[in-house]
Design a protein around this nucleic acid. Structure first.
Length: 877
RNA sequence: GCCCGAGUGGUGGAAUUGGUAUACACGCAAGACUUAAAAUUUUGUGACCGCAAGGUCAUGUGGGUUCGAUUCCCACCUCGGGCACCA
């Protein structure tokens, strides 16, 4: 085998050799922008893969699919003369590493180092063109000091306005807010949380520090609060959502099957809701799949409606309620409040059966806690004994506690009517008085039978009977009139609300970035000074949860003594901004130099799985917009173009997993077939975004293709006659590959190169210049074999740094075309003619054919359709 | 329930603005090479009728627009995804 090595395609040898060579000569090194002007000569292109977690399990063939796609793109851009930033690094904080440390009894720090090694060894075999000099790792204190630094900025900022809430808003330092409070006069400050604080400067000055802190906490972009977590008493730990499963007993832990309950716990939150309108609007400017944009739109859940303000009878309390389907607002006969609404205790204060009401509310909340979100659907509630003075003049309306009311949506209080299925069902169960103001039209009987009663819930096609001024109008058409009617009389104002909630930014775990805050003995929270960053994670003896639900840091006495925050940051902290660090990864003075940021701006091509649609891709857009407000970055969006690779499934069509025994290790494929074959095959399998099963049968086709390329080299000649037909195909292929890579249509690029290679096989000889053009366009897909052939043709340069071929439109012009002849739209024949033949030439060409005349005997042609260079269609009577 | 997306040979899939449906690849069948097998290579390969020439039917189903529909419109079926007591 070794003796005819000259003619053998020995992928192991070739791939090892060139990987070494590329690394030695640092061919993929990114050029830094010149520091003086912030502008380099070359145009930039930032191509990025989503930040991976280096798992200890190693890779399967599905993992590199996205990396190969982005690599093909990056390689073409590099050859096209762009200064390409194509880095890789690790998001190594988080649960899996901590779990691994617990199970194997080693420090997570050590586990990460090992796992990164495995990951890189596997990745490097595939021939990806990363600039490894820019590698980052979230667990490196040099990295996470900047994560902490950004957190402090968030903590020290608020997002609001003193004027109209509709005015363009930006994050501003909290010191500005304090100045507003200190100014004289009653300050009305609109915060995003919807709470409006009204107090005078002297009120503010009279407050003690703790009260001031509590006020400011309502405005901060990073704030302390409480939220429900999955608490497992037996394990003595808080569990993430994916560690909890539904069972017949209710919620249980995935490991052990122990009961899980919801428990209120102290948390840190990021006020992402402040950015909801901008996160929504920004989507229109992005080149992302409409699918992902849709998921984000749904998640943000913008809803336009009316906000009614109403007085509680016999009290100075005022309640607000949001109504998106307000067309039938004159039918409202009762209000409901969420059982866990913070206002409820005050509302029922002094009511005869106060304790009964509160215990009923408690009962509903407890019951709901046993279900996962949305599972609890029982209709339950109790009358609060309180009434609202209806702003629309329908007298006193009762307020009920209702199981279906959610405290986190709208205002947590709902104005209810007979024209809503859910309200209707509730009213029927508790015998609450109803009223109808909509009549069904004949065509639209949007009626539902509920509890043997009829509920007309079609708010679009109903005919209004109230208010009198709008009587007879179709509700859906009268929306604007109703808004005008209600707002002009001061009953309500136009309002927009969002489904999205603030993001919990804390984990009760060890393996995450420490939160750089200090609590003093008076309960006042202090920021760490910038020069004290990074706040390093302490070494601990045990990673075992404390049993109280608190992080293991709560068991470190020096940490607790110093008053340091014991929660750590969640997994998405580092991944929300890491792409900025790649721009200037070694900078000690800043997360990145401003000139580097001005040059690289944002990510041009971002590649990763679509499972991050509502997590990472939303959080990082939020951080980025925040940073934009402070002039830390220069564009509004971090990821201009996004492509999502599909999964590679096992050959049994199931997810690749140890559990099913269907895992294919890329190391094995690289060894047997080669990295180039793996790359070509993964790109050829099907559309990039599609999830497809791995097929060991099919990979042979990609290997055969590369072997054909290898063999064709033997018939390459320095100079030869130009085969004009082949030339056209070659240039058309070059054009197609360029366009296909641009559009991530890799499967069709490969197939068109296969067609070209099949043509080359038929030729006696191939001119070297033509073969070289082909090697260039194949290079992004199969960099090793093409580099080797390039060298064998006598070149000293690196093919991966060569210029991408330009396409001259003259060269792709067909000389001869086939014209299809149709009779009444059916294909009956075809003939060859010169490119650009006129209609009359085509008609005579077609009429000369026997197969055509046969169909036209005794027929009258009433119409002729001619599509140049394509077809001619005779339409007969 | 609401909102997206997709249904094409035995299989993965291709088809520009409405213009030859099934490119490319796998698999399969037959032939060549071989003692034989593998590898390689040549040819064929949507279904049905036919010795053939040729014809008919086919892109989830049913309709529509058009000279012409995988592509546009309407209804339905199936699968996948997202959201889900969201006022």
């Amino acid at each position: 085998m070794k003796n005819n090595v000259q003619n053998e395609y020995d992928h192991l040898d070739i791939e090892k050799k060139w990987q070494k060579e590329w690394a030695r000569k640092k061919v993929y090194k990114t050029e830094a922008p010149s520091t003086r002007s912030g502008q380099a000569k070359k145009k930039k292109c930032y191509v990025l893969d989503m930040f991976p977690y280096p798992s200890g399990l190693g890779l399967h063939v599905g993992h590199p699919k996205g990396y190969i796609g982005s690599d093909v793109f990056a390689r073409m851009r590099r050859m096209q003369g762009f200064n390409v930033l194509h880095p890789m690094g690790y998001d190594a904080f988080g649960l899996p590493a901590e779990q691994y440390a617990l199970e194997h009894n080693i420090a997570p720090q050590k586990a990460v180092i090992e796992n990164v090694k495995t990951f890189e060894r596997q990745l490097n075999k595939i021939g990806l063109s990363y600039d490894w000099d820019r590698k980052v790792n979230t667990t490196d204190p040099d990295f996470y000091r900047w994560t902490q630094w950004i957190f402090l900025k968030l903590f020290g900022s608020w997002y609001g306005s003193t004027g109209s809430p509709q005015a363009t808003q930006k994050a501003r330092p909290i010191s500005e807010l304090i100045k507003i409070f200190e100014k004289d006069g009653n300050q009305k400050v609109n915060s995003v949380s919807g709470k409006v604080q009204v107090f005078s400067a002297s009120d503010w000055k009279a407050m003690d520090e703790k009260t001031k802190q509590d006020v400011l906490m309502k405005y901060r972009l990073a704030y302390e609060g409480y939220s429900e977590v999955n608490w497992c008493p037996v394990l003595g730990t808080v569990l993430a959502n994916d560690e909890v499963v539904d069972s017949s007993k209710g919620l249980v832990s995935e490991r052990g099957g122990f009961l899980v309950v919801k428990k209120e716990m102290r948390q840190w939150f990021l006020r992402i809701t402040a950015y909801a309108p901008r996160l929504l609007a920004g989507l229109d400017t992005l080149d992302w799949s409409s699918h992902i944009k849709e998921i984000q739109r749904n998640w943000i859940g913008e809803s336009h409606g009316l906000l009614f303000t109403a007085k509680v009878k016999d009290s100075d309390m005022v309640i607000e309620t949001f109504n998106a389907h307000f067309q039938a607002c004159y039918a409202d006969t009762f209000f409901v409040i969420a059982p866990d609404h913070p206002m409820l205790p005050k509302l029922v204060e002094g009511v005869a059966n106060e304790t009964e009401i509160l215990s009923k509310a408690r009962e509903i909340v407890d019951k709901r806690a046993k279900f996962s979100e949305g599972e609890y659907r029982e209709i339950d509630g109790i009358f609060t004994g309180r009434y609202v003075v209806d702003p629309l003049g329908n007298g006193d309306l009762p307020i009920w506690v209702a199981s279906f009311a959610l405290k986190d949506y709208g205002t947590g209080i709902v104005k209810c009517s007979a024209h809503d299925e859910r309200d209707f069902a509730f009213a029927k169960k508790f015998n609450i008085k109803l009223k109808t103001v909509l009549l069904p039209t004949n065509e639209h009987l949007g009626k539902k039978v509920l509890n043997q009663e009829i509920c007309f819930s079609d708010m679009v096609n109903g005919i209004l009977t109230e208010p009198k001024e709008l009587m007879g109008k179709i509700a859906g058409e009268a929306t604007k009139d109703i808004i005008k009617y209600v707002t002009s009389r001061g009953f309500a104002k136009v309002h927009t609300t969002y489904k999205m909630r603030d993001a919990v930014f804390a984990r009760q775990r060890y393996w995450g970035e420490p939160i750089p805050l200090r609590h003093d003995k008076d309960g006042i929270i202090h920021e760490l000074r910038e020069k004290d960053l990074p706040l390093k994670l302490p070494n601990v003896k045990s990673y075992v949860p404390t049993g109280t639900g608190e992080s293991p840091l709560a068991g470190v006495s020096s940490w607790v003594k110093a008053g340091l925050e014991t929660n750590t940051m969640p997994g998405w902290a580092g991944s929300s901004w890491y792409f900025l660090r790649y721009m200037d990864p070694k900078n000690k003075k800043a997360f990145a130099d401003i000139n580097a940021i001005k040059y690289w701006k944002n990510v041009d091509m971002y590649v990763g799985g679509q499972e991050h649609a509502t997590g990472h891709l939303l959080y990082s857009r939020f951080w980025y917009k925040f940073m934009k407000d402070y002039g830390l970055v220069v564009t509004e969006e971090p990821f201009q173009t996004l492509r999502n690779q599909g999964m590679i499934l096992g050959s049994d069509n199931r997810k690749m997993s140890k559990r099913w025994g269907n895992v294919i290790n890329p190391d094995d494929i690289v060894k047997i077939y080669g990295a180039d074959t793996l790359r070509v095959y993964e790109m050829f399998m099907g559309p990039f975004e599609a999830s497809l099963p791995w097929s060991t049968d099919n990979i042979i086709g990609s290997r055969r293709f590369l072997e054909k390329v290898w063999k064709i080299k033997q018939k390459v000649i320095k100079k030869g006659k130009v085969d004009s037909k082949f030339e056209v195909l070659l240039y058309k292929t070059i054009k197609k590959i360029s366009e296909d890579i641009e559009g991530f249509s890799f499967n069709t690029s490969i197939s068109s190169m296969m067609i070209l290679v099949n043509e080359m096989e038929k030729l006696e000889s191939v001119r070297q210049s033509d073969f070289e053009l082909f090697l260039k366009i194949l290079s992004p897909f199969a960099p090793h074999i093409t580099e080797e052939l390039w060298k064998q043709l006598g070149h000293k340069s690196f093919l991966v740094l060569e210029k991408w071929p330009k396409v001259d439109s003259k060269k792709t012009q067909e000389l001869e075309v086939k014209i299809v002849v149709q009779i009444n739209g059916k294909v009956r024949a075809s003939f060859d003619t010169h490119f650009g033949a006129r209609e009359d030439e085509a008609v005579s060409g077609a009429r000369a054919l026997r197969e055509v005349e046969k169909w036209l005997i005794n027929k009258e042609i009433i119409k002729t359709v001619f599509v140049p260079n394509r077809l001619i269609n005779f339409v007969t009577k």
